[in-house]
């Protein structure tokens, strides 16, 4: 992605300022502001991080300490779709390793990587609270359960076929 040198759009800057204003202290909006930036660009670049930090009255290093602390803030580019496959205990018992192996083979990537066409990033995630339908994964904002290698592979194929 080539967004690293782009400034935050004015409406996004206004939203971040508003988030900061609504909090008891501006820095309390750190995660929600980073989440907003990520929703727009897919990830948080150094330039966007610095600009967001200045809107919150923080140093870039201070905000980066928060960005890198949390699992759901991406400081590197990701694909158009993000698959988060649960790697916690109930999903492990129910065969998530086989699901992961098939996804890796089909997508040609390992967890933490993005397909060459930029369509899909595969990530592990902590328990999604869907243990009665293990193995489970989150595809973007949608939860999928009762997976096996075939259903997961089919879902991955659908993501890659979808228009960018």
């Amino acid at each position: 992605m080539s967004t690293a040198d782009t400034l935050l759009p004015p409406d996004l800057r206004a939203q971040i300022t508003e988030l900061a204003r609504a909090e008891h202290r501006p820095r309390a909006a750190s995660v929600s502001a980073l989440t907003l930036v990520q929703a727009h660009f897919g990830w948080v670049s150094d330039a966007h991080l610095a600009e967001t930090a200045s809107l919150l009255g923080m140093s870039p290093a201070d905000l980066d300490g928060i960005a890198t602390y949390f699992n759901l803030i991406f400081r590197r580019p990701v694909g158009r779709h993000v698959i988060m496959l649960c790697d916690s205990v109930s999903c492990w018992i129910m065969g998530r390793d086989a699901v992961c192996a098939r996804l890796q083979a089909r997508l040609g990537i390992r967890p933490g990587e993005t397909t060459a066409d930029g369509a899909v990033t595969l990530l592990p995630i902590v328990c999604l609270g869907h243990c009665d339908h293990a193995p489970a994964m989150l595809v973007d904002h949608t939860l999928h359960g009762d997976l096996d290698a075939e259903t997961a592979e089919h879902l991955a194929d659908t993501l890659r076929q979808a228009a960018p």
Binding site: S88, V89, S90, V126, C127, G129, H130, C131, D132
Partner: peptide
Amino acid sequence: DEMEPGTFKDR
């Protein structure tokens, strides 16, 4: 912040 592995009641 339900995040205890194996827990799906608060959701």
